[in-house]
Amino acid sequence: MDTPLPRDAGVAAWKQIADALEAGIAAGRPGPGERLPTEAQFAARFGVNRHTVRRALAALAERGLIRSAQGSGSFVEAAPLRYPIGARTRFSEIVSGAGREAYGDLIAATEVPAGAALAAALGIAAGAPVLEMLTRHRADGTPISMGRACLPLPRFAGIDRAYAEAGSLTRAYAAFGVTDYRRLETRITARPADAAEAALLELAPGRVVLVTESVNLDQHGVPIQATRSQFAADRVELVVTG
């Protein structure tokens, strides 16, 4: 990664930089999850301007080799997280089991009326109030997924505050008498991330997200949550279990 760029190689400078960085990443220098040098440092190292470096980094991000976090820099992508989806799916347990630190961020919470499809999924009347929470879930600081979870009111009034404090829906549920819950069903599709999703998940434009739609039941078989989640496709391997 320290080799000066040959000026007569017939290859654009940004492509030479991208190739050099890719070779370094493949050799583990830097390793998964590690921060890359700054654009200014790369520019000085290769003797180019920052725009050239930025184009090289964008090319690597588009290929899923690195991610860029606003205000934090660029990082080498870690190996995809094995993410089982079955009757008992818990983000915190899955991430912790992989030896990584799990945490959830509450982005927004709003009371909205349930549409017909959502009402049917939760077993409530159309137009009944639900709490819609927009959340983001991270492993070792890397965004893995985001989602909109809808929970019936007034049963779960205030659970957004409990979630914001605990960083885990499982722990927040415990404060509302839900000692366990299970997944009724999950539907999975894929599409390019939109601009808002790309920003929250720190994805390059056009990267793919895996979209899951699910319904959870409490320990008594009562529907408590309908969620649509978007997973960064390069960062997970969804494994459907029995």
Rank of each mutant, 00 (worst) to 15 (best):
V209L: 02
V178P: 00
V215R: 11
F156C: 04
A198N: 08
P192G: 02
A199Y: 06
E213Q: 14
L169S: 06
A121P: 01
M133H: 12
D180K: 01
R207L: 11
A195Y: 01
E132K: 12
L131R: 10
R207N: 12
V130C: 06
A164F: 02
S145Y: 12
R187M: 03
L153H: 08
H137M: 13
T170K: 01
S229C: 14
G206R: 03
A128F: 05
S229G: 10
R191P: 02
L217S: 02
H220Y: 11
D140Y: 05
M146A: 13
T212P: 04
E197P: 12
T135H: 10
V208F: 00
M133T: 13
R187Q: 10
A120Q: 10
A117E: 15
R138P: 04
R183C: 02
V178T: 01
Q225C: 14
V209H: 00
A117N: 13
L118R: 09
L217C: 02
G167H: 10
D140N: 14
L134Q: 15
R161M: 15
T227I: 14
V211S: 00
M133D: 03
E213I: 08
A121M: 07
A204D: 03
T212W: 02
R148Q: 10
P143G: 06
P143N: 13
A195C: 06
R187S: 00
S168I: 04
D194Q: 12
R228H: 05
L122H: 04
T227R: 11
V209D: 04
T227M: 14
T212S: 13
T212H: 00
